[in-house]
Design a protein around this nucleic acid. Structure first.
Length: 116
DNA sequence: CCTGTGACATAAG
DNA sequence: CCTTATGCCACAG
């Protein structure tokens, strides 16, 4: 993938990965960023998710930080919607933190492999 | 072009 | 476990 194209569809890349997260699975901002080749710039992923508000189809609730903490829940309607969505997928959430994270963790690097 | 910003990550104390 | 500090990088204005 040419470097020049990295910045063009960055948001869409994030969306594409988020959309590929299987039901009942979650991943981290860093994992997505790493998969996109922008390792370390997990902030970009979070920011992209912030922009994903325009795209309701993006399962942003399946994207959490490294600790499995629902740091972005405040960005959902201001309620515990994010937690409810996760619990609806069979994921236990206690104190805004995903339980058994490793069990539910979905790594795009592994599941989607690395292209190029 | 420069500055601020952000739903993160990692390290250090 | 906590708080700070620093790196990180694309985007908006």
């Amino acid at each position: 993938m040419p470097k020049n194209l990295n910045n063009i569809n960055f948001f869409e890349r994030v969306y594409a990965v988020a959309l590929q997260i299987p039901f009942g699975r979650v991943t981290s901002y860093g994992a997505i960023g790493k998969y996109l080749g922008s390792a370390g710039s997990a902030r970009m992923v979070g920011w992209a998710m912030n922009a994903s508000h325009n795209k309701p189809e993006i399962p942003a609730h399946r994207v959490v930080n490294r600790k499995g903490l629902l740091t972005g829940k405040h960005h959902f309607n201001g309620s515990n919607l994010m937690q409810e969505l996760l619990e609806n997928e069979g994921i236990q959430v206690v104190e805004n933190q995903i339980q058994n994270l490793e069990q539910h963790f979905w790594d795009p690097m592994i599941e989607l492999k690395i292209k190029e």
